[in-house]
Simulated scan of single mutants.
Amino acid sequence: MSSLKGQREMIFSEDEQLNFKEFDPSIGADGYCSAIRNVLFPSSKPTTLDIAALSIKYRIYVRGSIFSRVRPIDNSLIDKFLKEHVTRKEFFPATRSVKDASIGRFNAQGVRKLYLADHPYVALKECGIEPGQHFLFSYFSFSADTYFMDAELNETKFSKILHDLFQSEDRRFYEVINRVYESYLDYPEFQGLAYSSARVQKNYHDPVWGEIDSTTNLVMKEDHMPSAELLGGWLALCDEKYRPRYLRIFIPNNPKKKQKLVSTSYQGSKSKFISLTQELIRKTRDTKRKSVNRIKNKEYADPEMSPVKVLIKD
C-alpha cells in the first residue's frame, strides 16, 4: 500500500475496523483513503486490473417533495435581514463571486452544494444552531423528479466503513469523506446524495418537537440547484426551548423576477406577517400533499441507468 512520506501505513486484519471518531494526523487523509480502497480491492497490486461491484441504492424524490434548510446568521448581519432588501440568493449557498464555499461534509473547498433536511429539527441540529442564535429557516420544493444516491448501500464491510466515515463528527475527516464520495458514490446520473444525520438519531423524541421520524439529509450538486425551488422562509431566533421565533418572513411572488422576495417583519405589521406565514404554511402542506399523491399513484419514472466508475491507481 502506498502512503505519503511521513504518514503511517494502515494495515488491517479481517477482524479490525477503521475508526473515524478522531482523525489521526500520522495517518493523514491519503492513508485513510488508501485503507478504505484496500477494503474494496483487497488483492490489488500495482500491476493488476481490479474490478469490484457495488450494489447501489437510490432514492426518488418526486416533484413537490418538501425539505427544510437552515443558514446561521452572524450577529453583524442581523440589521440587514431585519430591515434591508433581501433576495432569493441569500437562501442558497453563496456564489463564487461572493466567497468560496468552505469545506463541508460532502463539498470540497470552493465547491458549491445545497444541503437540505427532511425535518426542520434535523436542519437546525446539522447547522449547530444554539439558543439565542439567529438563522434563516426556509422551505424548498423540487420542481422535477430527482434521483439521489443512498449512502446506506448494503450490509457489506465496505458499506459499514462508509457509514461510519460519513457519521464522523470530526471535521478533519471532511477531506476524506469528500474524496471517498467522489471516488465511489458520485455519478452524473444522480443529483446528489441522501445520507443520515450525524447529530440526530432516528425516532429521537424531543420534548418540544416530538418524535423525529426522519433524519435524512440531502446534498445537491450545483448544476442541479435550479430544480430546488424556494417556497419561502423566515429570519428566526432560536429560543431557550429550541424553537424558532420568527422575526421576518420572505416569500417569492413574481415568477419573472426570481430573485425578488416580498418581506414583512412581525414588528412592522403583525397582521400581514401572520397572514403571509399562514399562506406559506398552507402552500407547503398543499405541495407536500400533492407529492404524496404522486407517490401513491406512481406518477414518476424509475431512471434507466447503469452507473460505472473507473478508478485510476495512485
Rank of each mutant, 00 (worst) to 15 (best):
R69E: 14
G268N: 12
R105H: 08
S13P: 03
D302V: 02
S227I: 02
S159E: 09
L185C: 15
L237F: 05
S2G: 04
F41V: 09
S269M: 02
V62T: 11
N254Y: 06
V98S: 08
I295V: 13
D170G: 13
A144C: 09
P207C: 12
Q267G: 06
M225G: 01
Y266E: 14
Y139A: 09
D286H: 09
E175A: 05
V180Q: 06
L311M: 15
E155V: 05
D206A: 07
M225K: 03
N297T: 08
S227C: 02
G104N: 12
K296V: 11
D79R: 00
Y187H: 14
G232M: 13
F142V: 14
D213R: 10
T284E: 03
K99A: 08
I212E: 03
Y139P: 02
P46S: 09
P252N: 11
S143D: 14
L116I: 07
E16W: 04
G31C: 02
F190M: 11
L40R: 12
F23H: 04
Q201V: 15
D50G: 06
Q259N: 14
T284N: 04
K80Q: 12
Y115I: 00
K89A: 13
L247M: 14
S138L: 12
Y147N: 00
L247V: 14
D24T: 03
E189V: 10
